[in-house]
Design a protein around this nucleic acid. Structure first.
Lengths: 355, 355
DNA sequence: TCGTGTTATTAACACGAGTTAACAGTCTAA
DNA sequence: TTAGACTGTTAACTCGTGTTAATAACACGA
């Protein structure tokens, strides 16, 4: 005899009430008063039978799936090297668990964006989505705004006022560069985390330049390079920077993942950190603490950011008003051992400044 | 006028057929022949209306959700530092996408395991699950085997013959240690990836010891330490190993993530790699290639492992017979620059062997 | 006894698909 | 001409729950 499915009808029978009452009791529906004895009977019956409501049926009837989607647009290659993903998932999981929701992970190919968002919304796989994409083409953006499913963006998409959660990339970059300036550096290079078409990269260069300008130093375009998310690209950019013969005593690398590659290139070239070059990173991934030397970096708490995004999204789903369309999380400069003051860097003869 | 939901009924009306026919055509049901013109009419109507089937309704009616679950049991802290997660997700996503399924991520607290698996199965959130847990208590294990939902384990759970996908941990460890032996090392320490109650750690020590024994070297328990997943624990263990004054010229660290911490401890102690100690890792996480020096390690292709697990699972779901209950993926020794032959290590005076 | 509220409970419909079994319609063979 | 086989199509039921509108049960004062 195969185990039979247990439905709310079974619970109702055992408790001696109707299925409707069972639904009312188990969902704790407000606005009607069911006496305690009845409630107890229902709960007892449910426990005894080990009743577990069927998710699909609930979703169909209630029009909510109780699932959130984490939607990514990066290709599998980048997903697999994304140092933040575990933190983001941990953060989301945390909130999702607490609010008795589930988490769906979805990957949308860039090319199919317009159709895909629509599809997700209409198929009702999820009640809301957290969009983890640094970039989106204009065409898809329009579609995205029309999609009738609550959306929170982690990061920034210029030209839209969808809900978003982010850090102040410009300000964070300013902090980093100011720290280098305070240490006495004047020739400061910069490797960005991504091509300039990505808003985070754009904001970080801006911060870099602003900080320099405030200090009376004209930015030198030859000292600015754009990497491409993964350590390999960091390694490559650092190589070409070294090959360019441009002088610099410090470098701001707008992603620890990329700094990892850059470290390797520096080591390979026989450069000492921080004696020959001071390096400051961005993100504070686990590696940063254990690098050689430990990397000074701007901490971005991805887990907290994800939690925040999830809070906003669930509030939206529950109909609560969310006051701010755009929420900004603080960043923090974590000082370790990859930077030193410019006096010390005089040891590195070849990088010696003339004046 | 709010956009109306488009149901299969609408498609049927527009195409001038019944809803049943629509279902048959769109699902490509075999065993009945519907003439091409009719099929075309249905497809045209569906396209014109932009029909997207409602997932919940499909799930309810068909009794399959077309979703797979990635189930983890590690606490959020460990999830956030899990270097493999992105690769696993990328691998799963790849297959899932191709087979038009979805991926659900679920975190089950150790304490609630027994109930949780049952619940997942009964609520029918998912059709099958990939269990990403290195450990499970006996109680939960029994429940797990009774759960009537196809399951594939990534890793090994001793004492069960559920489907699983894994590497040969023992053999991989043997490979690593043999490599050190070939280089002439005789005093080889070992830091495990996890406590010995985790099967992967147990298998790796076994391989470590077997390799030594085959070479006529009795394992020294004082050279064996157990870390705890994250870099911090690797740092700590390496510290205590160094403090123990035990002599060793090489070390096998059964996880790159832990090797990362160990590297830091070694650097801090002023030990040079590989001149003073040869280090060999396990996993080949992105960092390994960019460490200082680049880490020689045993490559574990987590992405491929995930793909494999996903293949097995989907085959099970489709009723295909899967010949092997346990599938083993090959590992590969990746030689970089963290190991050198014992002759060279003579430079490291304090670690000099007496004979 | 009869209204009149007030609770407590439920019958009945909705949700949007998949699927079985039966129905017309056409074609072949006797 | 008719029985039988085959084709294309669909009416009707199913999946398991949420929810509204109506009913039954009960207490109370007149």
């Amino acid at each position: 005899m195969p185990k039979k499915r247990i439905t709310s009808q079974d619970v109702a029978n055992l408790a001696g009430v109707s299925r409707t009452t069972v639904s009312f009791v188990l969902n704790d529906v407000k606005g009607l008063n069911i006496p305690q004895p009845t409630r107890q009977k229902v709960h007892d019956a449910a426990n005894k039978l080990g009743y577990i409501p069927n998710a699909a049926a609930q979703a169909l009837a209630s029009r909510r799936t109780r699932a959130l989607g984490l939607v990514m647009t990066r290709s599998p290659h980048y997903i697999s090297t994304d140092a933040f993903l575990p933190q983001i998932i941990a953060g989301l999981m945390d909130v999702v668990k607490e609010r008795k929701l589930r988490l769906l992970i979805e990957y949308v190919e860039m090319a199919h964006q317009d159709r895909a968002y629509h599809e997700l919304a209409r198929a009702k796989h999820i009640d809301g989505m957290i969009l983890l994409t640094p970039r989106i083409d204009d065409n898809a953006l329009k579609k995205l705004e029309q999609v009738d499913i609550p959306t929170v963006i982690m990061g920034e998409i210029i030209g839209t006022n969808l809900y978003s959660v982010d850090i102040d990339n410009r300000l964070a970059a300013v902090k980093a560069v100011q720290y280098l300036l305070e240490l006495g550096h004047r020739q400061i290079a910069c490797i960005l985390n991504a091509p300039p078409s990505y808003s985070s990269a754009a904001a970080r260069v801006m911060g870099y330049k602003d900080a320099l300008i405030s200090a009376g130093i004209p930015p030198n375009e030859k000292l600015i390079l754009y990497a491409d998310f993964d350590p390999q690209s960091g390694y490559d950019r650092m190589k070409s920077l070294l090959a360019s013969q441009q002088k610099f005593t410090a470098i701001f690398i707008a992603s620890d993942n990329i700094a990892m590659g850059a470290y390797a290139a520096l080591h390979e070239a026989g450069m000492r950190i921080p004696e020959d070059v001071s390096v400051i990173g961005f993100d504070d991934i686990p590696w940063a603490e254990y690098g050689n030397p430990p990397l000074t970096t701007v901490r971005l708490d991805a887990q907290e950011l994800a939690r925040k995004a999830c809070f906003v999204l669930t509030d939206l789903l529950n109909g609560k008003e969310v006051s701010q369309k755009r929420q900004i999380l603080d960043t923090e400069l974590v000082i370790r051992q990859s930077c030193t003051s410019y006096k010390h860097s005089l040891k590195g003869g070849e990088l010696l400044q003339k004046t």
